[in-house]
Simulated assay, not measured.
Amino acid sequence: MGINRQSMSDRIRAVLEQRIIDGTLPPGSRLLELEIAKEFNTSQTPVREALESLHSLRLVESERYRGTYVRAITDREMDEAYSVRGALEQLAAELAAPKLKGNVSELREILQNLHSAAADGDTHGYALHNDEFHRAIVDASDNTLLIEAWQSLGFEARVRIHLSRRHEPHLVARAAEHDPAVDALEQGDGATAGRFLREHAELCRLRWKQRHLEGRETAIPHGDALPVPATVLS
């Protein structure tokens, strides 16, 4: 019975997560336990478990009197999240370098999958392998607090939302940004690997900001245009 309930909870979570990511459930949408339970022909218990999982991914929020609803990811939140991610991954690379020196076969395999997804234009696969890549480096740091802090940022969902709602013509170039960090880690050079990862996070931060400015169709005076390195758009 417990296994069936957990399977139903996973199924509900997966369906709701996809609806949030593809925009079927836009920010502000209320998620009513009774309605969801009726849709999936189940009790409210697995629905509640699914919503808790989505809450841990920072995809939904719950407020008294308002209930549970889909979160909006603000520009400020993404700006801050990428800055924190860059700092955490820089430290993670420095700590992981001794362990990964001459031992990056797993990272190379993940990276190859990332490149393949990028070449195929598979944004879903790209997001999954991207998360797997960064997670592998963070896990190799063997620092529990660092790992927990990094996980709390929930970047797999963030990247999937970004890629599913905006055409990304430069996935191959984005995948290539990960290569130098692996080369440095293979040499045991944590300082260089960390610098590459922090620079990658900064490029992602600038890309997000630029895309959202374009998405709003904001008229920015020529002299006030957001400075974006050429590599961001290549």
Rank of each mutant, 00 (worst) to 15 (best):
14 A>C: 04
220 I>D: 00
185 L>D: 06
143 N>H: 15
49 E>T: 07
156 E>I: 05
182 V>Y: 02
122 D>Y: 04
32 L>H: 06
56 S>A: 15
7 S>A: 13
70 V>H: 06
83 S>C: 14
137 I>Y: 11
234 S>N: 10
107 L>K: 05
120 D>R: 12
34 L>R: 11
183 D>P: 06
203 L>Y: 02
223 G>H: 05
133 F>W: 11
133 F>T: 09
227 P>C: 01
213 L>P: 01
108 R>N: 06
147 I>V: 14
219 A>R: 06
196 F>V: 05
18 Q>W: 08
133 F>K: 05
173 A>M: 10
32 L>W: 11
28 G>T: 04
95 L>V: 06
206 L>T: 00
176 A>P: 06
62 S>K: 14
94 E>D: 06
182 V>G: 08
73 I>C: 09
100 L>P: 10
77 E>C: 09
54 L>W: 09
18 Q>I: 03
111 L>N: 12
29 S>D: 01
224 D>H: 08
182 V>R: 06
191 A>N: 08
175 A>L: 10
165 R>G: 15
24 T>W: 02
216 R>S: 01
28 G>N: 03
170 H>M: 09
72 A>K: 13
138 V>N: 07
13 R>V: 06
197 L>C: 00
167 H>Y: 13
87 A>F: 12
189 D>C: 02
135 R>H: 15
159 V>A: 10
139 D>Y: 13
91 L>N: 10
163 L>F: 12
29 S>E: 05
71 R>D: 06
219 A>D: 08
7 S>Q: 14
173 A>E: 14
163 L>E: 07
163 L>Y: 14
129 H>I: 08
10 D>Q: 08
148 E>D: 14
158 R>S: 08
117 A>R: 01
42 T>G: 01
186 E>K: 04
145 L>T: 14
160 R>Y: 11
42 T>H: 00
110 I>S: 04
222 H>E: 14
226 L>T: 01
116 S>H: 11
203 L>K: 01
11 R>C: 03
67 G>P: 11
222 H>L: 09
